[in-house]
Design a protein around this nucleic acid. Structure first.
Length: 486
RNA sequence: GUCCCCAUCGUCUAGAGGUUAGGACAUCGCCCUUUCAAGGCGGUAACACGGGUUCGAGUCCCGUUGGGGAUACCA
């Protein structure tokens, strides 16, 4: 299916503010933005907050913040659908006047019973058009009598055709929809009425949304037609699945933008990863910026099958972004993690130095900041299990004491430090590694980390001396905790 | 139940009738290295099944199975 998209588009992202921005939502927003970036045009943000019971202003704010954080930019809006309700009712009235819609006095109780019966028979329920052809005077009389009614659309009896960028030409038989409701008995528009009305008023050319709307589309298409409006081109994106191949749910971890942000995922990484979950640039490269993707975005490359969200790969990609960023670029995102780690008062220059040392070792910003805590604490906690082989060497405290004395007069730069340690090792006829590993343990409490002499240099003379002193004492005590502060 | 959609390594995917079925994550091994990462090199690993169509099918058609979605006076 070759799809030549030329000229500017008008796209929209229309979330309902019923919670945090979900991964599926971000991805939909991303593809909207990418199409807009590729073709030029306008990206509209519309908040579908007509369900007052489930929407509130804070959530609306929340969604905008999450989009902005992710790096998604819209050109127009946000428009609140709730503010357009009178317009929707007005347009429904036009349909009523043109006899493309009609008043239906059937109560939901009656309909419910009919529905239950139809399902018991093993079929699907369609509104039986009980009120489709009431006489004008009867309608007038019942309205006059105060009977409540809904407004129903006269669904077409022909096949419904539309084009979907992901699935190609779609054709639905008329039975797949019924005379669905446009206006509820309280006069408020239903979702179908609102979306179509807004998409027309906002001149939306391409509707990119989740696959869960695919079966709503046969309702929307004839509505566009009834209004004499151009039917937009659709793109129904497959759903995002969890590791169990079921709809992504909380029980496998984070599902909202907020949560990934709180874990220390960079916005660019989330954007990049989500864009590739269901779309591929057709080349082997996977690390792509928003602008690059916008340039090469091609709707033909949207995948039609559902994708499993792979947290591991997101983490890997985030690591790639951390690795590719300089500390100055990372810093604006680090605030909450620095606070969480209790490093608010840390010397900024020293913080930057050690963050740099650990950049290639972290997959999230949280991990990165956590890994740097050892440089800022007074006491290093030693794990007897990890220190086992150091405790087994009775000579070690003596060697380390000698090293400590030597380092006290060394220049605290990487190379001189290394020279000093090697000299001590040679004098004492031991291998450098006999000193290297315990020094790492003494200073960081860990067995892994950045190159030792970077670590020592970053730690500084005073801290190094103090930690070494503590560690030597710890070894001499045989690995027990200190009885009191020395 | 009914309608609709989907189906390549464990996962994301490339593949538009003829490929040793390619890449990435994960995994395993090796190299680098004082360690842990990062990086480099290599390995394991896939066309759900059954029928067609065709000289030839991962690619086209039908069916089966499996998964998902929709079946509201929710959006």
């Amino acid at each position: 299916m070759a799809t030549e998209l030329n000229g500017p588009v008008r796209v929209r992202f229309a979330p309902s503010p019923t919670g945090f921005l979900h991964l599926g939502g971000v991805r939909t927003a991303i593809y909207n933005e990418l199409l807009r970036l590729h073709c030029g045009g306008v990206f509209v943000l519309r908040i579908e907050d007509t369900d007052k019971a489930r929407s509130d202003e804070a959530m609306t704010r929340q969604i905008q913040d999450a989009l902005s954080w992710t790096g998604i930019c819209w050109d127009e809006g946000p428009f609140l659908q709730s503010e357009r309700l009178p317009r929707h009712a007005e347009r429904a009235a036009e349909l009523l006047a043109a006899d493309r819609a009609y008043r239906c006095f059937c109560t939901s109780e009656v309909l419910e019973a009919q529905r239950a019966e139809a399902q018991k028979q093993g079929g699907s329920f369609r509104y039986p058009r009980t009120c489709a052809h009431l006489a004008a005077d009867e309608i007038a009389r019942r309205v006059e009598a105060g009977e409540t009614f809904v407004v129903r659309f006269r669904a077409p009896d022909e096949n419904i055709l539309f084009f979907d960028l992901v699935r190609g030409d779609m054709e639905f038989p008329p039975e797949s929809i019924d005379d669905f409701i446009l206006l509820r008995s309280d006069g408020s528009p239903t979702y179908h009425m609102s979306v179509v009305c807004d998409d027309i008023d906002m001149a939306i050319s391409h509707v990119i949304r989740g696959e869960d709307h695919l079966s709503n589309t046969p309702k929307h298409v004839p509505l566009f037609l009834a209004f004499g409006a151009a039917v937009p081109t659709f793109a129904h994106l497959p759903l995002i699945l969890g590791p169990d191949k079921k709809r992504l749910s909380k029980r496998f971890g984070a599902t909202s933008v907020e949560e990934f942000r709180a874990e220390g995922i960079l916005p660019q990484a989330l954007y990049n990863y989500m864009a590739l979950l269901g779309w591929s640039p057709g080349e082997d490269r996977e690390i792509l910026s928003r602008d690059e993707m916008g340039r090469i975005f091609d709707v033909d490359r949207l995948n039609a099958s559902a994708a499993v969200f792979d947290r591991e790969k997101l983490l890997w990609m985030n690591g790639q972004y951390i690795l590719a960023s300089i500390v100055e670029e990372l810093l604006p995102h680090l605030g909450p993690f620095i606070h969480e780690a209790g490093l608010d008062g840390a010397d900024p220059a020293r913080l930057a130095t050690v963050l740099e040392l650990h950049r290639s070792r972290a997959r999230t910003l949280r991990e990165l900041v956590q890994s740097v805590i050892p440089y800022f604490r007074d006491e290093v906690p030693y794990d007897a299990e990890l220190c086992k082989k150091f405790l087994a060497d009775p000579e070690l405290p003596v060697h380390l004491a000698a090293l400590r004395d030597r380092l006290a007069e060394a220049e605290f730069e990487k190379d001189p430090l290394e020279a000093a340690l090697r000299a001590v090792a040679e004098e004492r006829a031991i291998k450098p590694s006999v000193l290297i590993h315990p020094v790492r343990m003494a200073l960081s409490g860990a067995t892994g980390g950045p190159p030792l002499f970077d670590l020592v240099a970053a730690m500084g003379k005073d801290e190094t001396s103090r930690h070494l002193g503590h560690f030597i004492a710890y070894l001499r005590r045989g690995g027990t905790l200190p009885e009191h502060q020395d």
